[in-house]
Amino acid sequence: MSKRLWAFIGGGLLVALVLAGVVCNYASSHPDGLDSSLLKGCTVDADDNIVGGSCPAQQAKDHELADSPLADYGVRGVENGFLSTGLSGVLGVLLTFAIGGGAFWLLRRRSSGATAETDGEPGGDATVDGATPTPAGRS
């Protein structure tokens, strides 16, 4: 892998870290298109809590992992809201890059073609992808 490519990846990551770490604190806190559509029929107070009416959003239940240390884009224990949101964003970007980049790196086609481990991927080509030829690098 070339140095130029890594410079580009590093630069892009830096942009993502600034967006998630700083800029996100200026994001709108209103419900998004989906949530607001589901709130139709209900009346909400200034904090967007349901105070009356009936709407699909009332069926919403708690998240399974609502107690996660990073739940709701904040770091538990960090009192400063600006810092808490920014820190959770930075951790999220790094975590997503580590998981995504790591998985894609393991899954990639080896250019040599000699080493073709399957990385724990079930070899179900024939069932799902049968119509298309297998790439040369595989098996």
Binding site: G12, L13, A16, L17, L19, F97, G100, G101, W105, R108
Partner: peptide
């Protein structure tokens, strides 16, 4: 493409 895909995921998260 592999590192680029990792970057794209991280950027979309942000």
């Amino acid at each position: 493409l592999a590192p680029m895909a990792g970057l794209v995921a991280a950027f979309i998260f942000a």
